[in-house]
Amino acid sequence: MASNEEILAGLAEIVNEETGLAPEAVELDKSFTDDLDIDSISMMTIVVNAEEKFGVRIPDEEVKNLKTVGDAVDFIANAQA
C-alpha cells in the first residue's frame, strides 16, 4: 500500500518518462492537459503505466474524470485501499 506522497512521486516518474517533464512540476493541483500540456494519447500511456506500477485497474470511462494530478492520486489511493 502506497501513501499519497509515494503515489505522487510514482506518477511524477511516469509523467517524466512519457513527456520529459521535470518530476517537481507534477503537483497535485496541476491539470494534466491545461498545465502539464499532456495530450489524450500520452494520458492513456500514463494510465497504463500507472496501472502496472500501482497494481490497480483504471477503467477507460474513468480516465476522463482524472483532470488533475490530485484526481489521479486519489483514484489510485482509493483503488488500492
Partner: peptide
C-alpha cells in the same frame, strides 16, 4: 472504433 480502448490494449 473505440480508439481509447484499442490504444490501451495495443500499447499494453
Amino acid at each position: 472504433q473505440d480508439g481509447q480502448s484499442v490504444f490501451r490494449w495495443a500499447v499494453w
